[in-house]
Amino acid sequence: MAAVLGDDRMSGTSSAGSTPGTTGSASGGASSLAAVALQEQTPVLRPSTTTWRQALRRDWRLYSLVVLPLAFFLVFRYLPMLGNVIAFRRFRPGGSIFGDEWVGLRYVELFINDPLFWNVFRNTLVLGTLTLLIAFPMPIVLALLLNELRSRKFKRFVQTVSYLPHFMSIVIVAGMVLQLTSTQGTINQLVQLVGGDSIPFMQQAEWFRTVYITSEVWQTVGWGTILYLAALTQVDENLYEAARIDGANRWKQTWHVTLPGIRPTMITLLILNIGTFMAVGFEKILLLYNPLLYPTADVISTYLYRVGILSSNFSYAAAIGLFEAIIGLTLILSANAISRRAAGTSLW
């Protein structure tokens, strides 16, 4: 017991940074949580002097805290990653979760030659791009507008209200969208008010993208301002002072001081958004769409849900899912690399 206590004391001292094995204090000054958290995952590695045996003896209590979470990651995150081999193996329900026999690229060829696949691939790209172009910049605009308010009370009121949709279940959001866009819903009442004919929005494929992006903005714009507002409070007041002395008006101050000030936040969030590009609103689309809307609404994730879960073509759907995940990973890695080179800001 005494020896164990001694060991714990040792670990106490080493966390103060006095043993050679420790790294320096966390890098500060980063402007977003993700950036802070991710930058730290690659600390400056100094040659470690402790062996595993020593580390285990000293920190076994800490390692014991890691066991269950690690089991979680291995079982529910990494095992499914390995499970993707069924994209290349024949899978029989009830058989091995890793499939029964190799079939090579059969399923990959199958979807590459599937015209339906290329339609959902295109829809995914279109909806992803529209989200990045429209839904991503909106919180920046809203944050800038909020930042110009003088009344603290009014500012807090707008913030409180605009965060609300973020807390709603996507099922409720979808229900609201369906009611608002129905033939007797508010939007069609407005259409009729200006003399138009009522439009069956949820039966016409050409309207789906508008409906999707509008509801996306509605749900995300308020909550998205939080990190920008935090970054805005960190912009150095002296820079505004200097800009004013140089004769910059309010607009020029925003353009030349405010925006560059929140640029690292913008880039970090952009990279994270690019990372989820391929997964565009799977749950929302699943709740909103119907066969009439497939030409524009069906995306890779919803297609593979129908093919895999509803029609039990597990291997085929897994091949599509793997393809989607690899594109997603490639996108975020390249976005990060480009941003690091071009803007000097990156996640890691």
Binding site: L82, N84, I86, I309, L322, G328
Partner: peptide, 8 residues
């Protein structure tokens, strides 16, 4: 950034 996906 990378997950197993729906089917697995």
């Amino acid at each position: 950034f990378f997950n197993g996906g729906l089917i697995p």
